[in-house]
Simulated assay, not measured.
Amino acid sequence: MCNRRQVCYIYTVCGHAFTMPDEHIACDNPKCKFSPVHPPNCTGDDCKRRCWQYRQPSQQYSPQLPELCPNCARK
């Protein structure tokens, strides 16, 4: 199912963290209302009965980078 990914880069040298804009992760399931392959004619009550109507919980990803953040690196 489609979901969102939240990425927050953590720079361990300076201790700063930068949260990136959420990314939409699309699936290829025609039964998912948010999928790019969901049929355009699948609407209304039939769609609500047969198709997934909610996104999965957001994936949270926080890689730790052993370097200065971009702001500190410019100083």
Rank of each mutant, 00 (worst) to 15 (best):
K33C: 02
F18P: 00
Q59R: 03
Q53F: 04
P57E: 07
V13F: 05
P36H: 08
E67H: 03
C32P: 09
K75N: 10
T43K: 12
A73Q: 11
R5F: 02
W52R: 12
Y54C: 02
Y61W: 07
D45K: 08
V37M: 03
P40L: 09
C2T: 02
K75H: 11
V7W: 00
R4F: 07
K31N: 13
P66H: 05
P30F: 09
I25H: 03
R50D: 12
N41V: 09
P66M: 04
K33S: 13
H24N: 14
I10Y: 12
K48R: 15
A26E: 12
R74I: 00
C42L: 12
Y11R: 03
R5V: 11
Q59L: 15
S35C: 10
P36K: 05
C47R: 14
V13D: 10
Q64C: 10
N3W: 10
P66Y: 04
P63M: 03
W52L: 13
N29E: 08
N41Q: 13
R5N: 06
T19G: 14
K48Q: 14
M1Q: 02
L65Q: 08
R50V: 04
Y9T: 01
Y54I: 06
K75D: 12
C72G: 03
L65K: 04
P39C: 03
K75S: 12
R55A: 07
W52Q: 11
A17E: 15
N3A: 03
Y9N: 12
R49D: 05
Q60I: 15
C32I: 05
C27D: 13
P36N: 05
C14V: 07
Q56R: 13
H24F: 15
K33A: 08
V7R: 07
Q6Y: 06
Y9D: 09
N29K: 01
C14G: 08
H38A: 15
Q6M: 07
Q53C: 07
K33L: 12
K48C: 08
S35G: 05
P21D: 10
L65N: 02
V7K: 01
P57R: 07
P30G: 05
D45V: 13
L65P: 01
G15E: 06
H16R: 04
P40V: 09
S58H: 04
I25T: 09
K31V: 00
Q56P: 00
H38L: 00
H38P: 02
S62V: 04
G44R: 02
T12Y: 03
C27H: 06
P70L: 03
P39M: 03
R55C: 11
E67G: 05
D28V: 06
P66R: 01
R5I: 10
M20S: 08
C42F: 06
F18Y: 11
